[in-house]
């Protein structure tokens, strides 16, 4: 009758020697070589400690209904018209202020409680003799991220555009993108930039200077910018028609980089370390078996189960 291997199991063999023997020294050396080099390999091949990571989140953006408009007219003396939602700013500009009609609607397209886009329309009344050649427009937003750290800031969308021919309408269609010079924290509350872009309560002209507003804003490490490099100008304005600015701003999903926390860093370091360690463990296991089986270092080999068997017999 033919025989088949139905079952098998590995037998354990122990090797005994003194603690100060060559074998013990060999084992200490091998253990050290097994565990320390993988750490060095993982570290020297860079990226051992995770320094920044990213996540995806749609920010909670709300239009603050703060608007500042400067429209440049076609004249050599630099005539302009302006209008804003800041009473002091309007007062400072005196005769150059032209009260404009503004409309704004924010839309939550997918009903997830977060606004997805802003429709903004501004109609600047113009005399038949006035012609708009350029526009500077600031809209301010409150911007919130909540998934990792609770990040709150007041941000702005700045539109600056000009056209060589007197315009009738300006159409801007872009995304309000987050710009990070520095990763965010992975937890906690971050309200560093929760200060208004334009200090609307100030009575001093220097606080409404576009140059200083922009300088202070871009000094921040986290800002938003409006990505529409090519606003569309329409020409051919009727004599009494206002100059129309149509702005559509979307609040898209953002990829936000952040500093990973302690456990995340440890987790990624552990993954790298263990994956390299397994190879070392396997190699040194082979070496140890070879060394002990062939008695390269002197030990007393004992077959554990044989011993038990013998004990039973006796």
């Amino acid at each position: 009758m033919a025989l088949y291997q139905l079952f098998s199991h590995p037998a354990e063999r122990s090797y005994r020697a003194g603690l100060c023997s060559k074998a013990a020294l060999f084992l200490v050396l091998v253990t050290a070589l097994t565990y320390i080099p993988p750490l060095l390999v993982a570290f020297r091949s860079h990226g051992f400690w995770l320094k920044r990571s990213t996540y995806e989140e749609q920010p909670t953006v709300r239009f603050q209904h703060e608007v500042l408009l400067v429209a440049f007219l076609s004249s050599l003396s630099g005539e302009y018209l302006t209008w804003s939602t800041f009473p002091t700013f309007n007062q400072l500009h005196g005769d150059n202020v032209r009260v404009s009609m503004m409309m704004a609607r924010e839309e939550d397209k997918n009903q997830d409680g977060k606004m997805d886009m802003l429709h903004f329309r501004l109609e600047l009344p113009l005399k038949p003799t006035e012609h708009v050649l350029g526009v500077q427009l600031i809209l301010t937003f409150s911007y919130q991220l909540t998934r990792m750290s609770r990040f709150v800031m007041q941000s702005m969308a700045f539109v600056q555009s000009s056209f060589p021919v007197p315009g009738a309408q300006l159409h801007v269609n872009g995304d309000l993108k987050l710009q990070q010079k520095q990763p965010l924290k992975y937890r906690g509350v971050d309200t560093r930039y929760n200060v208004s872009v334009i200090n609307g309560t100030s009575i001093f002209a220097s606080d409404y200077n576009l140059k200083s507003i922009a300088a202070a804003y871009y000094e921040r490490n986290v800002t938003t910018i409006l990505t529409d490099s090519n606003p569309i100008w329409l020409v051919g304005r009727a004599a009494e028609a206002p100059f129309i600015i149509n702005v559509i701003i979307r609040y898209p999903m953002e990829i936000i980089s952040y500093y990973p926390g302690f456990w995340e860093t440890i987790k990624f370091a552990w993954i790298q370390y263990v994956s390299i360690l397994l190879i070392f463990v396997w190699i040194f296991e082979r070496i140890k078996i070879f060394v002990f089986q062939n008695q390269v270092v002197t030990t007393v080999p004992i077959m554990t189960q044989e011993e038990n068997y013998k004990e039973h017999l006796s």
């Binding site: 400067v70 302006t82 009575i203």
Partner: peptide, 19 residues
């Protein structure tokens, strides 16, 4: 308030309302 006229707007015209 005591006024300190200063330039305002892109063309640098004087505003008399700056404090």
């Amino acid at each position: 308030l005591l006024k300190h006229p200063t330039e305002i707007g892109p063309s640098g015209l004087c505003t008399d309302n700056n404090a």
